[in-house]
């Protein structure tokens, strides 16, 4: 059974005129436990919205989002919050570290709402990422690469079963971007977490077990494939 399964997921928001506008339309998408998948798509195609839906930050207008058989779309917001805290890690493009907190505290906060704060484990994780000498530095005192590693540590602090990364290397130069992705894959592999990465970096795609194009998993694509009798899917 897949760790994550999206079926007929539809997200609509009202446009400025108040008419419903579809921003995400996924016919079917699956991700196995421990699998590392890259998600690509045009700008504005709904990649970030998909990650928000998977993270339980957004309830889809329609469809099912099954995580290990549990439908996130059917959970209350509070249970989705708890679920996210315990099972998911999230790395943002601009890292979104809390500016008033040190690197160590940012990682501890990543645990606070899930397994509970564990400074020793957070310290160990940061040391493993080469930030042992930057534990008490605030984000503004860190380089971009160091901030990226803190964000990765925070996402992994709870030993999540799935790590979502939204263009995590967008702010890094190509060399550092590949290095960061390699580190993310390595750490996810170590803790057995699946990894779903939204990326625009073509050079990085070859490193993933599977690459999924968002337009290929959309309901429109399925309809077209069914009508033409051709192949499709991720």
């Amino acid at each position: 059974m897949a760790l994550l399964e999206l079926a007929d997921v539809l997200v609509r928001f009202p446009d400025p005129e108040g008419r419903p506008e579809t921003v995400l339309d996924v016919a079917r998408f699956e991700l196995d436990a421990g699998e590392h998948v890259a998600l690509v798509g045009a700008s504005g195609s709904g990649k970030t919205t998909l990650l928000h839906v998977v993270a339980g930050l957004l309830r889809p207008t329609a469809g099912r989002v099954l995580f290990d058989g549990v439908d996130l779309a059917g959970l209350s917001e509070g249970r989705r919050d708890a679920f996210r805290a315990r099972n998911l890690g999230y790395v943002f493009q601009s890292f979104h570290l809390l500016q008033g907190f040190t690197a160590l505290e940012n990682v501890v906060l990543g645990m606070a709402f899930g397994s509970g704060p564990d400074r020793a484990a957070a310290r160990e994780l940061l040391e493993r990422l080469g930030l042992g000498h930057r534990l008490h530095h605030r984000p503004a005192q860190l380089s971009v690469g160091q901030q990226q590693r803190v964000a990765l540590a925070r996402a992994l602090a709870n030993r999540p079963r799935l790590v979502l990364a939204d263009e995590p290397t967008g702010n890094l130069d190509p060399a550092r971007a590949r290095e960061a992705l390699e580190l993310a894959r390595e750490l996810c592999a170590d803790c057995g977490a699946a990894l779903l990465v939204v990326t625009h970096d073509p050079a990085a795609l070859g490193e993933f077990q599977r690459v999924v194009r968002l337009d290929e998993i959309s309901a429109a694509a399925r309809t077209a494939v069914a009508a033409g009798g051709g192949e499709g899917g991720a």
Partner: peptide, 10 residues
């Protein structure tokens, strides 16, 4: 928003 993304409830 970050705290919420980390699992903090409303």
């Amino acid at each position: 928003a970050i705290l919420r993304a980390l699992g903090a409830r409303r």
